Amino acid sequence: MDAVEEPMSAFGAVTAQTNKLSRQYQALLDQSTPHTLYRWVGTGVLLVFFFARVFFAQGWYIVAYALGIYLLNLFLAFLQPKFDPSNEALDNDMEDGSLGSLPTKQDEEFRPFIRRLPEFKFWHAATRAITISFVCTWFEVFNVPVFWPVLVMYWIMLFVLTMRKQIQHMIKYRYVPFTVGKARYTKNSS
């Protein structure tokens, strides 16, 4: 009977430790939420360490390429609206035959820009991916020999093409994913 209780208590102890670590990690994330600039500076420093590791070790180009593709995917999700106007236009076209768009007149409904991927989740996913990539550079199994200039050129082409498409989408549906602050109006402007 004691042998049966022992694995259950070991499992319970591991679960308790995992829950404790999870709560501590979430508390750290919650404390870092208002410090946007410091979070991104830390992520940038971590990215510099990763690229320095790849540069000085002269390897792990596949890991760097995969990280670049993943970060590009995150960035595109960060730029896109949660409710895509192109999808709504297609839905409206199928429902009543009229092509819907974002409000352009004073009497139309105001719709604020809501990101598909919020800034905090973007930061958290990017930091986690950079950390995992950095850890991967310490294992030889991930050091696949490739001709890295081809990967760099392919990533640049992919970046240019996807950003061109995203910018065209932003122009077509007239939305800007960034705000610099509250708009200030002078007395002379009307």
Rank of each mutant, 00 (worst) to 15 (best):
E119C: 10
L72P: 02
V144R: 04
Y70T: 04
L151N: 00
V135D: 10
D91M: 12
Q80T: 09
F159D: 01
L29E: 14
M157N: 10
W123D: 04
R111H: 12
L158E: 15
A52H: 07
T179G: 08
E109D: 05
V63K: 02
E140N: 14
V152I: 06
K182Y: 05
Y25I: 14
W123E: 02
Q17I: 09
T15W: 09
L117A: 13
L37H: 07
V160Y: 06
L21M: 15
K82D: 08
I114L: 05
V135F: 06
S22V: 08
L151I: 11
A13P: 03
F55D: 11
F78W: 14
Q168A: 14
A16N: 11
F134S: 04
E5A: 15
F75L: 11
N19S: 09
S190L: 11
Y185K: 13
G44N: 03
F142Y: 07
M170L: 11
S101E: 08
F75M: 07
G12T: 06
F83E: 06
G100I: 06
I130Q: 01
L21C: 10
E5K: 12
A16T: 11
S22W: 09
L28P: 05
Q168C: 13
I171H: 08
S86N: 04
P112N: 05
M153D: 09
P112Y: 04
L71Q: 08
T104E: 15
F147D: 01
R116Y: 06
